[in-house]
Amino acid sequence: MASAQKILITGFVLFTLIEIAVCQRSPTISYISQEQIKDIGGTVELVCSVQYSQEYPVLWMKNDPANTNTIPISTLSTLILQDSRFALRFDRASSTYTLQIKDIQETDAGTYYCQVLISVNSKITADVVLQVRKPPVISDNSTRSVVVSEGESVQLECFAGGYPTPKITWRRENNAILPTGGTIYRSNILEIKSVKKEDRGTYYCVAENGVGQGSRRNIAVEVEFAPVVTVPRPRLGQALQYDMDLECHIEAYPPPAITWVKNGVVLSNNQHYYISHFATADEFTDSTIRVVTIEKRQYGEYVCKASNKLGSEEGRVELFESIIPICPPACGQAKYGDAATISTSTVAILATISMLIYRNFNAQH
């Protein structure tokens, strides 16, 4: 009987000790939501379950990336933040605190903390990261345009923000071949080594991350290069007292200074010559000199010279005397000087005779 009583007393003491130990157990966070990835305008629920926290305040907080501080959102079952998009639910049975955010904005992204305050210097914390999908936005520190001299190297840079992290690709206008080869290049930096004039044009930096339509920036690449002069007709004939146009085509950037020279003398507009330049693009110019009412001394070699800061080049055109007027530009023009005016029909007849003589000469040889 005494033994049974002893066992009973021992059991009571153990039960009391266990009860005291349970009552003194520290609070713990038994569950916190995993990382959440949501679209702008969507809804998210962040869940935090806490055990043995009846006597301790439980808070939801959010970090503030601007100043690395945290902002309190709620305490226990009370919402502190005055924002209609936020709501808090508390399930007493499971001691679960659910923070709901509706109409998610970009600024809602960040780290949310579920925190139990045990004392002034003691707390337990668990966190969950909320990522908000954002379409790509190309950064201001990306290249906008560049001017480089032929033979130099250049780097085109493109950076973009957004979530998920955008991928950057490069293309050229009209899907032209890139200097790196192929029509697409994937990297934040496109490096062109030893630039050629053919590399000039518009390059597209495209940022995509699957959210929205992506973002694109046009980058103009201007290549400075020395003039390249071509002459479409190096030898031209024309009869005395008729006009003739001499032409040269110039490719250069920056646009060059263009002069026509004969016998070392720079020609200008006067009663004997008329010079015109026509820019077909930033780097292409057509230059024409019209020799007006040709005299004997105007036959000979003409030099078309183009110069810019990177160099110069010239092309040569020989004007020689022909018996029959060449059409154009002779057709329909009046003969200058003291001679009588020749009609269009007369010039056409002369041109036909000239062609027949040419064919007969070729047939005999």
Rank of each mutant, 00 (worst) to 15 (best):
residue 143 T to P: 02
residue 189 I to R: 13
residue 91 D to H: 05
residue 29 I to N: 02
residue 219 I to H: 03
residue 42 G to K: 14
residue 114 C to L: 11
residue 56 Y to D: 01
residue 223 V to R: 06
residue 35 E to M: 11
residue 267 L to M: 05
residue 89 R to D: 04
residue 135 P to D: 04
residue 315 G to L: 07
residue 266 V to A: 13
residue 217 R to F: 03
residue 111 T to Q: 08
residue 274 Y to F: 08
residue 295 E to V: 06
residue 133 R to W: 11
residue 188 N to K: 10
residue 129 V to D: 01
residue 260 W to A: 10
residue 271 Q to A: 15
residue 163 Y to F: 15
residue 35 E to S: 08
residue 266 V to C: 06
residue 52 Y to L: 11
residue 22 V to A: 13
residue 27 P to L: 01
residue 25 R to M: 05
residue 76 L to S: 06
residue 3 S to D: 14
residue 340 A to E: 09
residue 284 F to Q: 10
residue 213 Q to V: 12
residue 46 L to G: 01
residue 335 K to N: 07
residue 344 T to S: 15
residue 164 P to H: 14
residue 58 V to Y: 04
residue 131 Q to N: 15
residue 42 G to V: 03
residue 130 L to S: 10
residue 40 I to F: 11
residue 12 F to H: 09
residue 120 V to T: 05
residue 306 A to V: 13
residue 321 E to N: 07
residue 4 A to G: 07
residue 115 Q to D: 01
residue 5 Q to F: 09
residue 195 V to P: 00
residue 136 P to Y: 02
residue 295 E to H: 00
residue 239 A to N: 06
residue 79 L to D: 02
residue 277 H to F: 02
residue 289 I to Q: 10
residue 138 I to C: 04
residue 277 H to P: 00
residue 363 A to V: 08
residue 254 P to W: 03
residue 105 Q to P: 14
residue 163 Y to Q: 12
residue 321 E to G: 04
residue 127 D to L: 02
residue 221 V to T: 05
residue 213 Q to K: 15
residue 235 R to H: 13
residue 218 N to R: 14
residue 332 G to P: 07
residue 121 N to M: 05
residue 157 E to A: 11
residue 18 I to S: 12
residue 225 F to S: 04
residue 290 R to I: 08
residue 135 P to I: 03
residue 206 V to E: 06
residue 322 S to E: 07
residue 287 S to K: 03
residue 191 E to Q: 11
residue 171 R to Q: 14
residue 265 V to F: 11
residue 59 L to H: 05
residue 112 Y to I: 00
residue 354 S to G: 15
residue 146 V to K: 10
residue 102 K to Y: 03
residue 207 A to Y: 01
residue 141 N to M: 09
residue 62 K to I: 07
residue 247 E to A: 02
residue 43 T to Y: 12
